[in-house]
Nucleic acid binder design. Structure first.
Lengths: 101, 101
DNA sequence: CAGCTATATAGCTGATAGGATATATTAACC
DNA sequence: GGTTAATATATCCTATCAGCTATATAGCTG
């Protein structure tokens, strides 16, 4: 299975997540903003679905896609392990400002 | 310039970040754990450096690499926009548990 | 400066990704 | 049931990526 990081590497796929992040949207709503063909959009949606990043439900001919947050949370938590790195810099800056004061 | 997301898509590059996350390390310390050749490691380090994800300093023939947290923080913050999605689920679960209690 | 160590760069190659066009599928509507 | 609408799948093509081997560079050490 393709990893969340790999899936998110593609700009159009990130854009799709942003577009449906507000709430579920049919495919046709995505084809406009992304400057690629409808089949290309469907291909990305398939990849997103297989990676568990989106879910679909059918409404007539429409297919409504929405974000599944679980993998995003996992990614967020992976990054969390580096949090101390940027926070320590912040600490240093604060310390510096304290010293100046 | 190649995006942070693309850089992070490669498993060996993520592993490199984990390996030097604890503190700076010479290239030779990375070649073992990663099961790829030394030139391949150097190639990944170059990409990481160009994307601003690592910094180097020289110590004799050694080159010591360390993480630059800035792009990681930005990625973290990008993901933050979806935080409400997984938190709302949590809310639902909590509500459900409340109802059961 | 010769030789050794550590790392980087060059050049090649096979695999894969992502795009396009053409076609199939599914569901509504007359 | 035939047509239109919305989306998915198939097929093909090109470009890029990540690996390898060979070689270059930089810096120590005798």
């Amino acid at each position: 299975m393709i990893s969340t990081f790999e899936v998110m590497a593609e700009p159009n796929r990130r854009r799709i997540l942003e577009l449906i992040g507000e709430g579920e949207r049919p495919v046709s709503d995505l084809v406009g903003p992304l400057k690629i063909s409808q089949p290309a959009v469907s291909k990305h949606l398939r990849i997103l679905r297989q990676a568990g990043l989106v879910e679909v439900r059918s409404q007539a001919q429409r297919r409504l896609y929405r974000v599944r947050s679980e993998p995003l949370r996992e990614m967020y938590e992976w990054l969390h392990q580096y949090r101390r790195l940027w926070e320590s810099r912040l600490d240093k800056l604060e310390n510096h400002l304290d010293t100046m004061a």
